[in-house]
Simulated scan of single mutants.
Amino acid sequence: MASLPQKRYYRQRAHSNPMADHCFDYPVSPDAMDWSKFYPGEENTPVEFLDVGCGYGGLLTTLSPMFPETRMLGLEIRVKVSDYVMDRIAALRTQNPTQYQNIACLRTNAMKYLPNFFKKGQLKKMFFLYPDPHFKKAKHKWRIVNQCLLAEYAYVLQECGVVYTITDVKDLHEWMVKHFTEHPLFQRIDDHDLKDDPIVEKLYSSTEEGQKVSRNQGEKFVAVFRRTSDPYLR
């Protein structure tokens, strides 16, 4: 039986420059994407959950048995980290033949190629868990949540789709809240209304980064947003 990969063989720098010229394969349009090599079974089932910057795949493996009928995809820009997630999923499928068929990982740059993979209104949920804070002001434009990228997220999310964010950096949390709430197609969901969402509690410790923050007794900041209807189309 296949054993799970060991992270020590896949270690890589924690950060990657999203503006660098990496070599990526990507389809000219979502219709040109062949998902059959990522997911066994029915080829026409679309991806509906997207974990942007999925790290070592902790959220994917946590949500997979919770939503077995939903296809989920993790995007990761770092080579060794994405290799680890792919090998981890392959091993889990071997160990559990009827499980983990609905998750996959793809190495790409979400800041550049998101519309190449996903159609308008395709996604139901997006996740940004412990994204790179890019502390220096000059690098704030590299943050995965910014004014320009929010238009793309709104494009690929269906109306009433949900975006989950969590970070241990208060400044980044406030940055994300500010940008999402100022965008006309997103509205923050009140914390009280999140109590019935089973996904929220999984944001805190399903990832390696979240577990690290817990060990260091750090604070975690959560904000969840809903994709609203287009006010100009009413």
Rank of each mutant, 00 (worst) to 15 (best):
D171W: 10
Y56Q: 09
V52I: 14
L233T: 11
F186M: 05
E76V: 03
A138W: 12
L172C: 08
A110Q: 05
Q95W: 05
K124C: 13
R11F: 05
E182Q: 11
K112T: 07
L157P: 10
A138H: 13
V85Y: 09
I166P: 05
R13H: 11
I89C: 01
D196R: 15
E201S: 15
F180I: 02
R188Q: 15
Q101H: 14
E219H: 14
V163A: 14
D230H: 09
E48K: 14
L185T: 03
T181W: 09
N44R: 04
Q122T: 03
N116T: 00
V145F: 09
E174H: 07
Y155E: 12
V47F: 04
L150N: 02
I77S: 08
R234P: 13
V200C: 06
Y9W: 09
N116R: 10
S214L: 15
Q147N: 11
A2D: 12
D230W: 05
F135A: 07
F117Q: 01
H183V: 00
P5Y: 00
L233V: 14
Y155I: 03
V162Q: 09
I103P: 09
Q122Y: 07
I144N: 09
E174A: 08
P115Q: 06
P68H: 03
V79M: 11
R93Q: 12
P68Q: 01
V81D: 03
S82E: 07
V224W: 07
